[in-house]
């Protein structure tokens, strides 16, 4: 295996008394889509901004394309592309002007017109930035991040705040980049995004990487339990459902009870008996394969969006 294109060892970052990163370590191979998955405030953006050279680390070793992101000069910036958590451009800048301007900053550059065409912005080339929709702005941000044929692409929450349809459009674009073997570091708090797009994922919580591997490997960690999602005619307490046979964990969210069971048949039988005895009824019941959400729950005792 060749040397990793991104290396992060024991990375630390403090904001005053707040310890944002407490020794984060991971490596990314060339051509890999690597995801940093975690809830808001976990340290994902701090990590990616240090890797982009936007913030200095307080400790640890960071290398991208063999370069220190804090190194002076433009060599490092020539190698990377970035979609920031929120990209802003001047309101009265036209789409075509924006991408041509950013292309002109680099030694290695792609044809801006071809990029606009690829990202479906050809007809918007004379439109002011302020007139673009959220999805169009994000597509432009992606197009701009590729103007220099970057060796590493950083995507910080690329679909945050976008509606489901636009999110799917962005997924399609990232999947195309994945097929081109582009190295991508993606941060997200969407399980679906990490499972669908990433070759490997590091789950990050409270400034620490608590697990990493392929989505399949991570989910196998939860292989000992199966997730049962159920709706009831009348509410029940989590504590009561936890007493059922084979139940490892149970929590309720938006009227849905998620029960993790080590012995599914026994759990279902004891559930039915319990409901009958208490005059309650099942409205629906789904048995699902474990997801990264379950892995996170198992590791932290919290849900990603808590």
């Amino acid at each position: 295996m060749s040397a990793p294109i991104i290396e992060v060892h024991n990375l630390t970052k403090n904001y005053g008394a707040v310890k944002a990163l407490r020794g984060v370590s991971f490596e990314v191979q060339e051509g890999e889509v690597f995801g940093l998955l975690g809830p808001n405030g976990a340290g994902k953006t701090s990590t990616v901004e240090i890797l982009e050279g936007l913030r200095p680390p307080d400790g640890g070793i960071v290398s991208v394309c063999g370069l220190d992101p804090q190194s002076p000069g433009s060599a490092f910036k020539q190698e990377i592309g970035a979609v920031l958590q929120s990209t802003a451009l001047p309101d009265k800048l036209r789409v075509g002007e924006a991408i041509s301007m950013f292309a002109s900053f680099y030694k290695r550059r792609r044809d801006p017109a071809a990029l606009l065409k690829r990202f479906g912005l050809e007809e918007k080339r004379n439109t002011f930035y302020s007139y673009l929709s959220g999805g169009q702005k994000q597509r432009l941000a992606l197009a701009m991040s590729l103007v220099n044929e970057p060796r590493v692409l950083f995507l910080d929450e690329p679909t945050a705040g976008l509606d489901p349809q636009v999110r799917r459009e962005i997924y399609t674009i990232i999947e195309e980049l994945k097929k081109e073997r582009k190295t991508i570091l993606l941060t997200t708090h969407y399980i679906e995004e990490a499972e669908k797009l990433c070759d490997r994922v590091a789950i990050i919580d409270q400034g620490r990487v608590i697990a990493q591997g392929t989505p399949r490997e991570l989910k196998q960690r939860s292989a000992g339990t199966t997730r049962i999602e159920l709706r009831l005619a009348r509410p029940e307490s989590d504590a009561a459902l936890k007493q059922l046979e084979g139940v490892a964990d149970c929590h309720a969210s938006d009227g849905v009870y998620v029960v993790h069971s080590t012995r599914v048949p026994q759990t279902i039988v004891s559930l039915v008996k319990y409901l009958e005895a208490n005059g309650n009824e099942l409205s629906s019941l789904d048995i699902a394969a474990p997801s990264l959400e379950d892995v996170f729950l198992e590791l932290t005792g919290r849900r990603l969006r808590d």
Partner: peptide, 10 residues
């Protein structure tokens, strides 16, 4: 946040 977009460029 316009300046920070320029900051990730050379």
């Amino acid at each position: 946040g316009i300046l920070r977009r320029f900051r990730v460029a050379p």
